[in-house]
Write a protein that binds this DNA or RNA. Structure first.
Lengths: 183, 183
DNA sequence: ACTTAGATAGAATGACCTTTCTAATTTTCA
DNA sequence: TGAAAATTAGAAAGGTCATTCTATCTAAGT
C-alpha cells in the first residue's frame, strides 16, 4: 500500500514549501522535481491544500521523534535537554523560520484544516512543557512552560538572524537561569 | 507633493499584506479597497515589489517611533521599557506574527531589495540593544542585546498562541531576571 | 499470457495574476 | 479661466495557477 512516489512527493513538497512558502511553490515545480506525473499527485492527494496538510503532519512527526530521541524525561534537566534538542532541529531542519507558524499566518481565517493542524502542533508543545513542569513538581508549571516555549520560539526566529548555534546558546543560557530561578 | 491617494494605498496595502501575506493579496484587492484606479497605483509605485518595499519602510518607521516614544533611554530600566513597548506594539499592530520576518522568508533568495529592507530592520534592533547595553556599562553587551532581542522575537511568535498580554508578561518577567543577572 | 491498477505525458480549462494601454474625466493652481 | 497634471474605468496582453481529462504505457500478480 505504501507508495514510493507518494513519499517522494511529500519529501519534495516539504522542502520546497519550507524554502519558498506554500503560496510561492506551484504544483508544477513539485511534480517536476519529484519526477512524477500530474495525475500521480492527484491520485495520492485530493488537492494542494491536502498536500500541505500531509506535509505538516509529516513534519510534526519528525519534530517529535527528534525531541523524544534527545530528551530523557527523567533526567535532571529535561528542559535544558529540550531546548538543546530544539537547537539541533533548528540547525539541521529549520534554519529559516518555522513552518507551522508560517502555515498559521498564511491560512488563518480561510476556514480550512491547515491552520488547525499547525496550531495543534504549537498547543502540543505547550502541553509537553506543562507536563514536564508538573513532573518536576513546580507549582507554577504553566508559567514555566510558557516561558520555555517562548524561548524556543525566540530562538527559531533568531536563527534567521544570527544562526542556529548562537540562537541556541542564548536560549539555553536563559533557560538555565529560568529553571534555577523557579526551583 | 504628498498625495492622499498614495497614503491610502500604503495604508490599505500594509493592512492586507499583514493579514493575508504578500503573495496572498492581489493588486486588484488593494486598489479596490483603496478606491483607486489601477494606474494610480502604478503612478506612485513602479511595481508590486516596490509597493511591498514602501510598505515595509513605512512599517519600520512606525515601529521605531513607537519604541522611541515609550523608551526613556536614560531611565533605570530601558530594557524593560523596550520590552513593554514592544508588547504594546504587538497588541495594537502585530497580533499575528511579524511582517519583517515574513518578508525575509517569502523573498529570501530571489535577489530583490525586499529581503534587505526586512533584514535591515532586524539588524537595527540588535544594534539598538547593543548601544543600550553599552550605555549601561555592561561588559557583555552583545550577549545581553542578543538575549533581549530573542525575548522580543519570542513574544511576537507567542502572541499568535497565547495573546499579546500574556506573551508580554512572560517576556518582561524574563527580561527582569536577565538584567538583574548581568548587572 | 491476461488482467488490473497505477503511472505516464501533455493538452484543455477557467480563474487569477501583474503590468500596460487608451481615452475620457476631474482636480489643481497660476 | 485655462493649461497641466492626476485620476478614472475598463480592456487587453501575457503569465502562471490548480485542476481535470485524455489516451497510452508499464508493472504485478494470478
Amino acid at each position: 500500500m505504501k507508495s514510493v512516489k507518494k513519499d517522494t512527493l511529500l519529501e519534495v513538497a516539504e522542502r520546497l514549501f519550507y524554502e519558498h512558502g506554500f503560496r510561492g511553490v506551484g504544483l508544477k515545480q513539485i511534480i517536476s522535481e519529484a519526477n512524477v506525473a500530474t495525475m500521480t499527485l492527484y491520485n495520492h492527494f485530493s488537492s494542494k491544500d491536502n498536500l500541505v496538510e500531509e506535509v505538516l503532519k509529516q513534519r510534526e512527526e519528525r519534530y517529535w521523534s527528534y525531541l523524544d530521541s534527545h530528551v530523557e524525561m527523567d533526567s535532571d534537566s529535561p528542559f535544558i535537554l529540550a531546548v538543546r534538542a530544539h537547537g539541533r532541529w533548528l540547525k539541521e531542519q529549520s534554519y529559516k523560520g518555522d513552518m507551522f507558524l508560517r502555515a498559521i499566518e498564511d491560512y488563518a481565517g480561510t476556514d480550512n484544516e491547515i491552520e488547525n493542524i499547525a496550531r495543534g502542533h504549537k498547543t502540543r508543545l505547550l502541553k509537553y512543557f506543562q507536563q514536564l513542569a508538573l513532573k518536576k513538581g513546580k507549582d507554577n508549571g504553566r508559567d514555566l512552560a510558557n516561558q520555555i516555549t517562548l524561548l524556543l520560539e525566540g530562538s527559531t526566529s533568531m536563527t534567521t538572524l544570527i544562526g542556529a548555534e548562537k540562537a541556541t546558546e542564548y536560549s539555553i543560557a536563559m533557560a538555565r537561569i529560568l529553571v534555577q530561578h523557579t526551583l
